[in-house]
């Protein structure tokens, strides 16, 4: 007699495909997300007449806006066709919305920086900065819609909480980047961003795991599990350091900021990896649909 096949799967083979994306994608989630929150920081700093913070945040954001497209293009199967991303605007596609957002965001930041360098009126710098500052938070969170709008059980199942994980993480990493870059005036605002951002990030992540229930298993296993431990430890330790030692010592703030950045990057890697593990075992998908 032939041994009974598992009645709930076909030889244990995956039903949905593993993500086709490469490492560059979670790195982009991190860099783009941080950059988006920094642009918002720059906009608000201008309004509160903190020119030092405004400039520093904008330059850091610009660096991220320059790295982001490079990461995305190298992930493409046909990098030479990257301009096809802007061939049409497709509101049904989070990737199309994101590509246009990134294009507008980078252009606005570039325009603000250029306008300031060549000495154009401050109002022009400010206008470009507002454009970047408004697009920034969208850039930080649309990537969660990108993941949620797939058939992947661990992403799709958390589609309403992922945006909060990403927005909190982006706020924290923007504050972390400012702490590492060093003080302009003082770091109080940056430190507050780290603490508040980490709180939103970790609470949302916890809520996400709770909501997923059994589907959250990959977050505790394999590479995603390891990355989860790293992200949680780094983020919490970073925020704790910032809230305590960071108040008095520049070194403490810099180390805390670096840990926050590591935690935020590991968080994106963790979520990305979990998508692979979730797709590989068909029982997750079947369970999520029965």
């Amino acid at each position: 007699m032939v041994p009974a096949a598992n009645p709930r799967s076909y030889y244990g083979l995956p039903i949905v495909k593993r993500p086709a994306w490469t490492q560059e994608v979670p790195w982009y989630f991190f860099v783009g997300g941080t950059s988006g929150a920094l642009a918002a920081t720059s906009m608000v700093a201008r309004w509160s007449a903190n020119a030092g913070l405004e400039r520093r945040a904008r330059r850091l954001a610009l660096a991220g806006a320059l790295i982001s497209p490079a990461l995305l293009i190298s992930d493409l199967g046909r990098p030479s066709r990257f301009l096809n991303m802007l061939r049409v605007f497709r509101p049904t596609s989070p990737m199309s919305v994101g590509s246009w957002t990134l294009a507008g965001f980078g252009s606005a930041l570039g325009a603000a920086e250029t306008a300031e360098l060549v000495g154009l009126p401050a109002a022009m710098v400010g206008t470009a900065e507002v454009a970047a500052g408004v697009l920034g938070p969208i850039l930080s969170t649309y990537t969660a819609v990108l993941l949620g709008d797939t058939a992947n059980p661990i992403w799709r199942g958390a589609r309403h909480l992922l945006p909060f994980v990403f927005s909190g993480s982006s706020m924290a990493s923007a504050g972390g980047a400012l702490c590492v870059a060093g003080p302009v005036g003082d770091l109080r605002s940056a430190r507050l961003m780290v603490v508040a951002g980490t709180a939103v990030e970790q609470l949302s992540f916890f809520a996400m795991e709770r909501q997923l229930g059994a589907l959250a298993e990959p977050y505790a296993e394999g590479r995603a599990g390891t990355l989860n431990t790293i992200q949680r430890a780094s983020s919490l330790l970073g925020a704790a350091l910032i809230a305590t030692l960071g108040r008095r010592s520049r070194l403490g703030a810099a180390v805390g900021g670096a840990l926050t950045l590591v935690g935020s990057a590991a968080l994106r890697q963790c979520i990305y990896r979990a998508g692979f593990q979730s797709a590989e075992d068909p029982t997750y998908l079947v369970r999520s649909q029965s």
Binding site: V44, P137, S140, P163, S189, A196, V200
Partner: peptide
Amino acid sequence: VAAGVLLGGVAGAIV
């Protein structure tokens, strides 16, 4: 909403 939280959080931290 999450983008709003981010913007509000950043603004709050700066103010």
